[in-house]
Design a protein around this nucleic acid. Structure first.
Lengths: 114, 114
DNA sequence: GAAACACTGAAGCGATTACTTAACTATTGC
DNA sequence: GCAATAGTTAAGTAATCGCTTCAGTGTTTC
């Protein structure tokens, strides 16, 4: 696990493509083979494999080959990492706004002599 | 607001670059001018402006120009949209796993004659 | 063991990205 | 009004992306 900036690069890059998000969406409803992932997508199987490799390299998806079938599933820990990065920044900003609001309210009270 | 797949494309694409995440990180600690965003980054001001345009097009950052200074701030609603997409997929998968676990436990009980 | 199946890998190609430099436009301070 | 400041815009370039086709490689099925 890289766990650093490069890992986030790979994860967000992976999620930036609609075909790949479609695949994640599908996998969130249960494991699937490469062919099953490819079925609703308007592109060659080869293209799907390439997308899948991007997803796997990012850590968002784990795959395992049994016989001739590669079964794919979501890696929720990786999803949580991406989610967490965004959440931290958003909360940081929102808390800053809250503190500013509180400060302004307080200052106003004092100005009014309360 | 696009609110569709194209919007998510733009947001995740925007977050996929370390320089742009650095800028979002900086902005989560308070508004900043273009020059302030550029200061810690090892690239031309021009490059920073281009990154900023990507962030603004994605909706993650809002900017406003007063005089010659462009002030930038985070758009928490957009961050929440990206966060929400990931969260939904992860929860969906985790709940599936939970239900499967419950089903297996129940089946085991019945097999054991409880 | 031949045929069908489920992928896999390499090469190629047009579009997009992440920069650079250089020339430019407003605004502000003196 | 002249210089410094803050940012913008355009053009160019090397690298990467998202495909395609085509020629494989193992695996099952009959």
């Amino acid at each position: 696990m890289l766990q650093d900036s490069a890992q986030l690069d790979l994860m967000f890059q992976a999620l930036a493509d609609p075909a790949r998000r479609h695949m994640v969406e599908r996998l969130s409803r249960g494991s699937a083979s490469v062919s099953q992932l490819a079925e609703p997508l308007a592109m060659s199987l080869s293209a799907v494999v390439q997308h899948l490799n991007v997803l796997e390299a990012s850590g968002l998806v784990h795959t395992e080959k049994l016989g001739r079938v590669r079964t794919c599933r979501i890696e929720p820990k990786a999803l949580r990492t991406a989610e967490h990065w965004i959440n931290e920044r958003r909360l940081n900003w929102e808390q800053r706004l809250d503190r500013l609001g509180a400060f302004l309210a307080e200052t106003k009270d004092e100005t009014e002599g309360n």
